[in-house]
Amino acid sequence: MLANYGFKDGSGDWFLVIDTDKCDGCGKCEAACPANVLEVGPDEYDPFREEPVAKVREEERKKIRYSCASCRPGYGEEPTPCVIACESGAIYHSEGWKFLYGKQ
């Protein structure tokens, strides 16, 4: 499942996407995130899944544009810490940050 956490507004798409089929719930992203946006717990969208899954904290979902901004998702010199930490490649950001803040 592609879980799109965040929102879309007049200025762009602000989503942190977690591919739950790739995520094994290891928790390295949670430890790596400097803004404490991520957590690992039961899958809220699939009651039959038994293993834990990474997700965006409930209270962060409406302000993800700002919480994730300092890591320069999609346009920084390096990928974001969560993306680097995730060995299974389950995490990525939508393009709002890149389009609005990235260099042309």
Binding site: L2, A3, N4, F7, K62
Partner: peptide, 12 residues
Amino acid sequence: GKVIKFMMNDKC
């Protein structure tokens, strides 16, 4: 009926 992708617009 299993979710494979979702997004919401809960900002406003």
